[in-house]
């Protein structure tokens, strides 16, 4: 093997850095949508590398549902300071008040869907023309068909039938006023690729990705953290378990995994051995309907 050879993670990294530089060059006001999850943490690492030694030339934007894990919020603030990026936080709570929206009801009342309102308002407020997201095509079948540069209309809607052909490594980010583009630099990464990259790069993660003790209830086989945002009913049994999170979203729609893994090596080994998909194991919201993601994307979701 010649020394002029990139391993698969280096190839993926080179492709993503290329995409980041295209974004910075083609758009006036890009923003990186940051959730505190491992995928957006990976995005920040790639953006850092793409523009080094300069700073990341766009802000990190967090659409805060108010249902976050405290550890993820602390990490978010730390990371923004660490990379010297501007952090913009907009709260779903405020959107609900301003727009007189109805809070979702139920045991796991999730504001996940309402995020779309806050996101579109934030895009409008800052006139963002490109929003960078950490979606991966291996996650789900609607995403498998979405472009790396995904053009959205004035309402943020994705129309799968009107996608631009995306050829070679040439990205066409031209848009009309009012439209914006969602860009997914890690489209071609799988969950395991992200974990392996985090391990190789020794990227620090929020503590909830590692084993810790937590009070949970068991709901349809999934472990849900006890929190003020989840309705605990009399017949719920609260257990103390050693858990970690495989993905980090809202406390209302993210399930924990029983685990004793306390290091990245141990976590990656567990992910390799698992026989259940990331969404299947940890996302409560996707189990509602088979086409849940397709519907949300068409409605302007990430």
């Amino acid at each position: 093997m010649s020394s002029y050879h990139l391993n698969y993670l280096e190839q993926l990294e080179a492709e993503s850095i290329h995409i980041f530089r295209e974004i910075a060059a083609q758009f006036e006001r890009p923003a990186l949508l940051f959730s505190g999850g491992k995928d957006s943490i990976t995005l920040v690492q790639l953006a850092k590398k793409a523009f080094a030694p300069g700073k990341i030339p766009f802000p990190l934007v967090h659409i805060d549902t108010g249902h976050n894990f405290e550890e993820a919020l602390q990490y978010r603030d730390w990371l923004a300071k660490e990379v010297g990026a501007t952090l913009i936080v907009r709260k779903v709570e405020d959107t609900i008040k301003q727009r007189n929206l109805t809070e979702p009801k139920g045991k796991f009342a999730s504001r996940n869907w309402l995020q779309t309102y806050t996101l579109l308002d934030t895009i409008e407020e800052f006139k963002f023309d490109a929003c960078i997201g950490g979606a991966r095509r291996d996650e789900e079948k609607a995403r498998a068909k979405e472009r790396i540069f995904s053009v959205r209309d004035d309402f943020g809607q994705w129309d799968p039938k009107l996608q631009r052909p995306e050829l070679w490594n040439i990205y066409n980010g031209r848009i009309h006023k009012g439209e914006n583009v969602r860009v997914f630099p890690i489209s071609n990464w799988t969950e395991l690729d992200v974990w392996n990259y985090i391990k190789t790069e020794a990227i620090p993660l929020p503590s909830i990705y590692f084993s810790h003790e937590r009070e949970v209830i068991v709901h349809e086989g999934q472990l849900i953290a006890v929190s003020p945002f989840v309705t605990i009913e009399p017949n719920d049994i609260i257990l103390k378990k050693m858990v970690r999170y495989r993905t980090v979203g809202d406390m209302t729609c993210t399930a924990a995994v029983e685990s004793l893994a306390t290091t990245l090596d141990e976590v990656v080994d567990e992910i390799k051995a698992t026989r259940i998909s990331e969404r299947g194991e940890t996302r409560i919201d996707d189990r509602v309907t088979e086409a849940a993601m397709e519907d949300r994307k068409k409605g302007g979701y990430f």
Partner: peptide
């Protein structure tokens, strides 16, 4: 495919699939 495809009997151009073996992605 997507529900939109099934309902309208269309197929959207390209879908990307991923798999890995110990030798290659």
């Amino acid at each position: 495919g997507l529900r939109a495809e099934r309902e309208q009997g269309i197929t959207i151009d390209v879908a990307y699939r991923y798999f890995t073996t110990p030798r290659r992605k």
